[in-house]
């Protein structure tokens, strides 16, 4: 009953290049779901919105609100597609693992991709790299470098360390929340499948925890986008 990940070791003969096919599968599924949903929601756009278009526009307004809270809308509007894609991608990633956990043979195929530390860290690394990119692009190299030594030069080491801690906390916060959720769900599933009493005992907590996981999933996707915009604003805002 011990579940393993479907790992392919040393792809293309490169030592250490281990590929978890489950992650590949799940990120593809999540991307597909998000793509189909969003494109379906934004087809046949009308002046008078109805149905799914209302929801999509609400989402746009929501992310626009997050961006506007952190920076000037004129510099912030380029981040809108990024924020929207992030929030949908992370939300769907969080939710796919709540209701079901799919196992084929001994391999765990279906789970939240965000319950894998590597994937969340990849996302957070991408975000931090993007903040640096946009920091240079929006304010110029000189102003960008100056942010590391302001207000006083001895802040430089702290500023550099901060970039790494930001990356780590951003990624591990998401991972920790989702991973804890999956651990508890796994425990409850194990308990439920062990005996009839276990099933009766686990049913109510499982229901409650799944509801809570949906809540956590939504909150964490919001927090991730919020922090993305906060870090972005530190780099692109002139008044910081």
């Amino acid at each position: 009953m011990n579940h393993e990940n479907p790992i392919v070791h040393d792809i293309f003969g490169i030592p250490g290049a281990d590929l978890n096919l489950s992650n590949v599968f799940m990120t593809f599924i999540v991307s597909l779901i998000v793509f189909v949903f969003c494109v379906w929601g934004s087809r046949k756009l009308q002046m008078k919105p109805k149905g799914l278009q209302n929801f999509m526009e609400w989402a746009v307004e929501f992310v626009r609100g997050i961006i506007k809270d952190n920076m000037d809308w004129r510099t912030g509007r380029v981040f809108l597609p990024l924020g929207l894609t992030l929030i949908f991608y992370i939300l769907v990633s969080n939710l796919v693992g709540v209701a079901t956990v799919g196992v084929v043979g001994h391999d765990l195929w279906w789970k939240s991709p965000t319950a894998d530390a590597g994937l969340t860290l990849a996302l957070s690394t991408m975000i931090i790299v993007l903040t640096h990119y946009y920091g240079i692009k929006v304010r110029g190299t000189k102003a960008y470098l100056k942010t590391f030594v302001s207000p006083v030069p001895f802040m430089l080491p702290f500023k550099i360390v901060e970039e790494f801690t930001n990356t780590l906390t951003l990624g591990l916060r998401l991972f920790g929340n989702l991973y804890a959720g999956e651990v508890l769900l796994g425990l409850l599933v194990g308990m439920a499948t062990s005996s009839i009493f276990g099933f009766l005992g686990a049913a109510i907590p499982m229901l409650a925890w799944q509801g809570f996981s949906v809540f956590i999933g939504a909150i964490q996707s919001y927090v991730f986008v919020m922090l993305t915009m906060v870090y972005m604003s530190h780099k692109v805002n002139a008044d910081h």
């Binding site: 792809i11 196992v103 860290l121």
Partner: peptide, 17 residues
């Protein structure tokens, strides 16, 4: 032992990323 997620914590696999 039943924990399905136990295996997913181990290591950062850069191809996944």
């Amino acid at each position: 032992d039943l924990l399905t997620v136990g295996a997913s914590v181990g290591g950062l696999r850069w191809p996944d990323m």
